[in-house]
């Protein structure tokens, strides 16, 4: 079956440098730097990435950062809490615009 997403493509991510090496290489160097241990641990960064992966609904990222979170020692509860953080922010982002809606409705109403 032909689909837009193929799991095997994740391993080919690096191939994007073939058509634009300079930008691609800079991106991957930056990417590697971002995920190194710093003020945040590698595990904390993996969990943030996992949450963002769900927020942007990227199947490649969910695959990659589920694996990475497990490798970095996260357990199921931590991973699901990270997903709830993403869900809370996404839900909250929708709901907080309710204030804008209320403002506009009041502006238009007698």
């Amino acid at each position: 079956m032909s689909t837009y997403y193929n799991p095997a493509d994740l391993a080919k991510f690096g191939n994007i440098t073939e058509w634009q090496p300079e930008m691609g290489n800079k991106f991957f160097a930056y990417y590697a730097e971002v995920f190194k241990e710093g003020a945040l641990t590698e595990r904390e960064k993996a969990l943030i990435a996992l949450a963002v992966a769900h927020a942007v609904q990227c199947p490649y990222c969910i695959d990659a950062y589920t694996t990475d979170s497990l490798q970095k020692g996260a357990d199921e509860a931590q991973m699901m809490e990270a997903v709830h953080v993403a869900a809370a922010i996404k839900g909250g982002a929708a709901l907080v615009h309710g204030v804008q809606m209320m403002n506009k409705a009041k502006e238009l109403s007698m």
């Binding site: 241990e37 641990t41 590698e42 497990l70 970095k72 020692g73």
Partner: peptide, 20 residues
């Protein structure tokens, strides 16, 4: 000894030790 409980490789020994 930390062996991954699944089909993945272990992460950083230093980071996991601190967490453990």
């Amino acid at each position: 000894v930390y062996n991954p409980a699944g089909a993945f490789m272990p992460g950083s020994q230093v980071g996991l030790e601190r967490e453990f």
